[in-house]
């Protein structure tokens, strides 16, 4: 009897877990896509930033690869990632759709600074550090108005 209730409890827990996982999958596919895009930004900027901060040893090849990846990621046409009405339950701010031109131009700024990073990242650590401020600045310039914290 005891083992039966334990089994029932486990089953309830399992269903609850599946339901939670399912909720994530229920997110609008474009929301999942743009979160994934941000993750890829963070991964590559993390390599560059980690070197700039001295947390990882500078490696010219790895730096160049990360910077080139940023250029590739920021050259995608992401207009379809931001359909109106997909802010709810996310950190995206409704202001995006009130100033869509400004929002998109902030994305172009990121692409511009990613290219600036790719131009110098493989030279030496000082060049990478010099480009890091501008690249990071474009992240917060956009997050200031268009993402909740």
């Amino acid at each position: 009897m005891k083992s039966l209730s334990l089994l029932a409890g486990t089953a309830v827990l399992a269903v609850a877990t599946i339901a939670t996982a399912h909720a994530d999958e229920d997110m609008h596919p474009t929301v999942v896509a743009r979160h994934a895009q941000m993750q890829l930004y963070a991964y590559n900027v993390g390599i560059l930033g980690g070197m700039a901060q001295g947390k990882i040893d500078y490696d010219a090849e790895a730096a160049q690869t990360a910077a080139d990846n940023m250029v590739a990621l920021t050259s995608m046409n992401t207009a379809s990632f931001w359909p109106e009405g997909t802010a709810e339950g996310t950190k995206a701010q409704p202001a995006i759709w009130e100033n869509l031109d400004d929002f998109m131009s902030k994305g172009e700024d990121l692409a511009f600074e990613a290219q600036g990073m790719a131009d110098v990242a493989g030279n030496d650590l000082a060049s990478l550090q010099g480009a890091m401020g501008n690249l990071g600045g474009t992240c917060s310039a956009c997050h200031r108005e268009y993402r909740a914290r």
């Binding site: 900027v45 930033g49 992240c139 997050h143 200031r144 268009y146």
Partner: peptide, 12 residues
């Protein structure tokens, strides 16, 4: 820098 340890960036 505005970067979190996992390289998210500051917002809002």
């Amino acid at each position: 820098s505005g970067f979190t340890p996992d390289f998210d960036s500051v917002g809002g």
